[in-house]
Design a protein around this nucleic acid. Structure first.
Lengths: 117, 117
DNA sequence: GGCTAACGTTAGCCGCTACTGACGCTTGGG
DNA sequence: CCCAAGCGTCAGTAGCGGCTAACGTTAGCC
């Protein structure tokens, strides 16, 4: 419920293979813009634009450190997409999602892993 | 043979708002191509092309009945996307998988990142 | 066969999007 | 101050992707 527009932007952002690669790169660790750009063969400018897109739809977090900008994936940005998936999957997995949400509440970025058992 | 990443096609298909609407329409019931087209204001041709795309990436099932073609969402086509989500979300479902991998002894994942100390 | 209904397919147009190259901005150091 | 490092931003361009209109195809009825 909330904004259907949010899911639209997220899906358009994820439709690009390189943007998905970027997300995977910074899924569990941080990286500077330069480090991320070094992982591709396209120009640094193109990567910067991808970073802008990902950040604008809430899939990326930016932190400044001197002249460098450190990026990190923001898993919360995928919440709307998960809702969309569950809506059409209509499975027992929806129950699991409720358990997870109830457990983590509104806590923010944290790599800690917890069992839902 | 085969496609290295079926998720790519699925995400590109889902990036279109009308295709998502189509999927929602036939998520729990069947509909003919004409009925689906009637739900939009674009031409029937455009809807037919959307149906072709959705079918080509495995998100739709087609059944013929006389001159009509009946469509229905194929939730199995979203399995790969769900894996992608879990990979970056790191929720309880993914945790269970990680535990299994840990028991097997840290086999093959190469997404390990070096941590600059 | 002739005709209609219900679709898919093709050709062409047009807007969007990802790319490159040049430039501007901010930070830190001499 | 000047200069370099590190990035973002601004034109400009090539190509992809979705749209319409016309045409082709299959199924059923008379």
């Amino acid at each position: 419920m909330g904004k259907p527009d949010a899911t639209d932007g997220v899906l358009r952002a994820l439709a690009e293979p390189r943007r998905r690669t970027i997300l995977r790169l910074v899924a569990h660790t941080e990286m500077s813009a330069g480090e991320i750009a070094a992982a591709f063969e396209i120009s640094r400018t193109a990567v910067s634009q991808h970073l802008t897109v990902l950040k604008s739809v809430g899939l990326l977090t930016e932190r400044r450190e001197g002249t460098r900008r450190i990026y990190r994936a923001r898993s919360q940005g995928l919440a709307g997409l998960r809702e969309f998936l569950d809506e059409m999957w209509g499975d027992a997995l929806d129950t699991a999602r409720q358990l997870v949400e109830a457990e983590r509440g509104l806590s923010d970025t944290d790599e800690r892993v917890r069992r839902a058992g």
